[in-house]
Amino acid sequence: MSAGGGTKAIIAALGANLAIAVAKFVAFLFTGSSSMLAESVHSVADSGNQALLIVGGKRAERRSTRKHPFGYGRERYFYAFVVAVVLFTIGALFSLYEGWHKIADPHPVESPVWAFGVLVFAIVAEGFSFRTAIRESRALKGDHSWVSFIRRAKAPELPVVLLEDFGALLGLIFALFGVSMSVVTGDGIWDGIGTMMIGALLAVIAVILATETKSLLIGESAAPEIEEQICAALESAPEVSRVIHLRTLHLGPEELLVAAKIAVQHDDTAGEVARGIDEAERRVREAVPIARVIYLEPDLYRADASAESRTGA
């Protein structure tokens, strides 16, 4: 997996979640708190998710084959989508069920000191993981907002880890709220309410992740500014008078397919056109290194074809 995939953030999140899962489960055994059980399952699911992201990154590095001539780069999108499914089915549904069960049959939290101690430890550990994910993401985020970064990112790992860590911190706050209210009031229903809040939070995050990764799985074009760079590079070649239209598709986070119809002079020889295409491809790869698969079709520009967008919008 490339550095852009946020390997450091994934490893940090995996280590934190494994340690936190063990601590939360021990606290559940001592307290009987449904919030602690829900958070234990949440951390186990997150650990599995980080493992899935690592597996996806490794499988995406395989060489192209006759059956898959464009390689396996989009496996990273598939495994990110599986993460969303796991987060919903294991994390959200289990938490919602456990919360409903606790509300229907409430009982007080035992040995709350264990719960408070583990929750504070978990908040510190998740905060470290979240800070690592933010630091890894800043270079890719640029001037965009965090919401825009999550929506525009072509590498799915960092948005997944960011949302998971953010959800984990909120979930810990919800668990702390549920346990605290149960201890203060002596009513175990609050513990169930905190658990239901965790389940609802995980469901929302899972839906967001599934929506974004589904779009990547279907196939997304390059960002508008990248397409403008490609057009500029093509039109800078001497033999290319203009780009008639352009199509781009991400074969993976760091691999872009470029297909364009370019206008050439009507009196150019076949050799001149071939040299012009080679030069245009070289300039595109120089301007946009991730443009690794390029198909250019020479044509004569016609004014009546101007209705066809350069970028296919």
Rank of each mutant, 00 (worst) to 15 (best):
D304C: 09
S306R: 06
P106E: 08
G192P: 07
L201K: 02
D143I: 15
V113A: 15
V83K: 03
A122F: 11
I10C: 03
P108Y: 00
V258S: 02
V26A: 07
A23Q: 05
F149A: 14
S33F: 00
A270H: 13
A260Q: 02
S145M: 15
G199Y: 01
S137E: 08
L234H: 02
I134W: 12
L37K: 00
A233F: 06
R152L: 15
G15A: 05
T311I: 07
P69N: 10
H266M: 13
A9H: 09
A200L: 10
S129F: 05
E281A: 10
S2F: 14
V82Y: 08
L53D: 04
K8E: 12
A125V: 12
E255I: 06
R152W: 14
E279M: 09
L246Q: 03
E136N: 07
L202V: 01
F28K: 01
A23M: 13
S2K: 15
R247D: 07
V22L: 14
E281P: 02
V179T: 00
H107Q: 09
A51I: 15
V55P: 04
T311P: 03
R135I: 07
A237G: 06
F28A: 03
P106W: 04
R302S: 10
K141R: 14
L93G: 06
E39S: 00
F81E: 02
D278N: 12
H101Y: 15
R310G: 05
E279R: 13
K102P: 00
L216E: 09
L172T: 05
A274E: 06
L37T: 00
L14P: 05
I173M: 13
I277V: 12
R247N: 08
V44D: 06
R285G: 07
T211L: 15
Y295T: 10
S47T: 15
A51S: 14
L176G: 10
H107M: 08
L93Q: 09
E164T: 13
I230Q: 00
G142S: 14
G91N: 04
A133Y: 03
A233N: 05
F94E: 01
L119Q: 03
V83T: 04
S95C: 11
F121T: 10
V161M: 03
Y301M: 06
S2P: 13
K58I: 09
L14N: 05
I11N: 03
